[in-house]
Simulated assay, not measured.
Amino acid sequence: MSQLKASDIKRIAQLSQIAISDDEIPMIEEKLESTLAILNQLQNVDTTNVEPMSDPFDRTQPFREDIVTESNHRDDYQVVAPSVEKGLYLVPKVIE
Rank of each mutant, 00 (worst) to 15 (best):
S21E: 08
N49R: 07
A19K: 10
K31L: 13
I95T: 09
L90T: 15
P56M: 05
E51F: 09
P52Y: 09
S54D: 15
L32K: 00
I95G: 02
P52E: 13
L15H: 07
K31M: 13
S34T: 10
P26K: 04
K93Y: 07
L88K: 03
H73Q: 14
A6N: 15
P82F: 02
T47K: 08
D58Y: 12
L15P: 01
E51G: 09
F63D: 12
Q3W: 08
Q43F: 13
T47M: 12
I28C: 00
M27F: 10
S7N: 14
L88P: 00
T60A: 06
P82K: 09
P56G: 10
P62R: 08
D22Y: 00
T48N: 06
D8L: 02
V91Y: 04
P26H: 03
M27I: 14
V80H: 12
R64E: 14
L88N: 07
S2G: 10
N44Y: 05
E70N: 09
V68T: 12
E85I: 09
I12K: 00
F63N: 12
T48C: 02
L42R: 11
D75T: 14
S2E: 10
N72F: 03
S16L: 11
I9D: 01
E96W: 02
L15R: 07
F63H: 13
T60K: 08
M27E: 15
S21A: 06
S16F: 03
V91S: 06
Q17F: 10
I95R: 06
E70P: 00
I25S: 01
I28F: 02
L90G: 07
E70M: 04
Q3R: 10
M27W: 07
M1H: 15
M1W: 11
L36K: 08
E85Q: 12
L42P: 01
P52A: 08
F63I: 11
S71P: 00
I95N: 05
V45M: 04
N40E: 14
S71Y: 04
E51K: 13
S2F: 10
A37N: 12
S83L: 06
S54W: 09
V84G: 00
I95Q: 06
S34Q: 11
A37E: 14
E33V: 03
V79N: 05
K5D: 14
S83P: 00
Q17V: 11
Q78V: 03
Q14Y: 05
D76C: 02
Q43N: 15
T47W: 06
E51V: 15
S7K: 13
M27Y: 12
L88M: 06
R59I: 11
Q3L: 11
L88H: 05
L36E: 11
K5M: 10
Q78N: 08
T69H: 02
Q41A: 13
T69S: 04
T35W: 08
K5T: 15
I25H: 00
I18L: 03
V45S: 01
M53A: 15
L90N: 12
D22M: 03
K10A: 02
L90P: 01
P92R: 03
A37P: 02
K31G: 09
L42F: 15
R74D: 06
A19V: 09
R64L: 11
G87H: 00
D66G: 04
M53G: 15
T47L: 13
V91N: 04
Q61S: 12
E24S: 15
E65H: 08
R64G: 10
